[in-house]
């Protein structure tokens, strides 16, 4: 599989990362090299092999339904860029 410019632009948009037009070709060739390399896995037969999601703990622990967090609005907002306490803000979203 080979990434073209259009795919790079689509992926960059999906990942919300600005990519300069001048960077696209370089990025495409780098990513293509990496993808070509990881595609060596295609030569390995994995038929009937279960995918491995994680290691170790095989069963998620469950937590009691207690309220033991929150009420820390000040700390939660302390690092916010352009806050309007008690709110975070973003540039106006038009619905």
């Amino acid at each position: 599989m080979s990434l073209d410019r259009e795919t790079i632009v689509r992926i960059a948009k999906l990942a919300r990362i600005d990519v300069e037009d001048s960077e696209i070709d370089g990025l495409a060739s780098e990513l293509n090299n990496i993808l070509d390399w990881v595609e060596t896995l295609n030569s390995i037969s994995t038929e009937g092999v279960e995918p491995m999601v994680g290691v170790g703990v095989s069963k998620a622990p469950l937590r009691m339904d207690n309220t033991n967090d929150g009420d820390i609005a000040e700390a939660v907002l302390a690092n916010a860029p352009d806050p309007a306490p008690p709110y975070f803000t973003v540039p106006k979203v038009i619905e």
Binding site: M1, V38, L41, N42, I44, T46, V49, E50, P51, M52, V53, V55
Partner: peptide
């Protein structure tokens, strides 16, 4: 499936 799922399966084999 071609990449992520495949890699997870190979991960099983490595383990």
């Amino acid at each position: 499936d071609a990449y992520y799922k495949k890699a997870q399966r190979v991960r099983t084999l490595i383990s």
